[in-house]
């Protein structure tokens, strides 16, 4: 009667079910009004505000002597912030909520594997993060006339910084989801962390203008490196001089993001449970 079910746990099936969850998760995401605003559209709103508020200011000059506009100057920071919001903030609050509202308990009683569940989550972050980045780039180009890089090398850098950033932030979000005691307190716990990181990591405030002790502190966290990687793609090479050590330091970007990726993976592996038994 039950012998046919031993084929359930195969890698192919885990992936198929995981992919079906990607669509399911994306549908849920876009049907949730507050997540669309606070994680998806937020960087776009900030980019618009900065671009309009400082529309007459110049943020420096490129090698040919052209002035860099506010939109061009803030675009890399907003792309980095988008990765952080779509990855870390979204995952941390979403999973904390699912823990407390019974979603995970229901899933725990079905033959869904944890791996399929994570494929769904990370797939959702990847797709919404890509759409968000595309929207930011299109608005920056069309509405604010930002010149985007034309050579493939810059876009290759963008691709790996973006992918590594998304994966790292998603994992850190999953790891952080076990911190809030309830779904309701999740946003209160997570949003301050995310906000402070954005202020000290060169998203809203020029990083080189911060006191050096704060720069050193911020350098421990991934967002500073993510923003730096994005600046290397979208800002003229003349801006490199303003960076620490006078270089984009892409190797440093890869190493720090890589370390946080592995840390997120280990913490997730050790702490994630469908439910807290005996709570």
């Amino acid at each position: 009667m039950s012998t046919a079910t031993t084929t359930l746990v195969t890698p192919a099936r885990t992936v198929t079910v995981g992919l079906s969850r990607v669509g399911y998760e994306i549908r849920s995401y876009f049907r949730q009004g507050d997540s669309v605003f606070f994680t998806f559209l937020f960087p776009l709103v900030m980019l618009t505000i900065f671009s309009v508020a400082f529309s007459n200011a110049s943020f420096g000059k490129d090698a040919a002597g052209h002035s860099v506009s506010a939109a061009a100057y803030y675009l890399p920071g907003m792309l980095a912030a988008g990765v952080l919001l779509s990855g870390l903030q979204n995952m941390a609050t979403d999973i904390a909520m699912e823990k407390s509202d019974g979603t995970l308990k229901r899933l725990a009683g079905t033959p869904l594997s944890v791996i399929s569940y994570f494929i769904g989550k990370i797939g959702q972050v990847l797709v919404t993060g890509l759409l968000q980045a595309a929207l930011l780039l299109v608005v920056a180009r069309v509405l604010f006339g930002v010149a985007l890089p034309t050579d493939p090398a810059h876009w290759v850098t963008f691709a790996w910084v973006f992918l590594l950033g998304v994966a790292t932030c998603a994992l850190l979000g999953i790891a952080l989801s076990s911190v809030p005691r309830s779904g309701k307190s999740a946003t209160a716990v997570i949003i301050p962390i995310v906000l402070v990181l954005q202020f000290i990591s060169g998203v809203y405030i020029t990083f080189s203008g911060l006191p050096s002790w704060l720069q050193n502190f911020a350098s421990v966290f991934p967002l500073k490196w993510l923003a730096q990687g994005m600046r290397s793609v979208f800002l003229p090479s003349t801006f490199q001089a303003a960076e620490a050590g006078g270089s984009w330091n892409l190797v440093g970007v890869a190493i720090v993001l890589g370390i946080w990726f592995v840390a997120g993976l280990i913490v997730t592996r050790l702490t994630f449970r469908w439910i807290r038994k005996d709570s």
Partner: peptide
């Protein structure tokens, strides 16, 4: 098959 006591899930589907 498990029918738990009711939870408060989002219900976006």
């Amino acid at each position: 098959g498990i029918v738990l006591q009711s939870g408060g899930e989002q219900g976006n589907q």
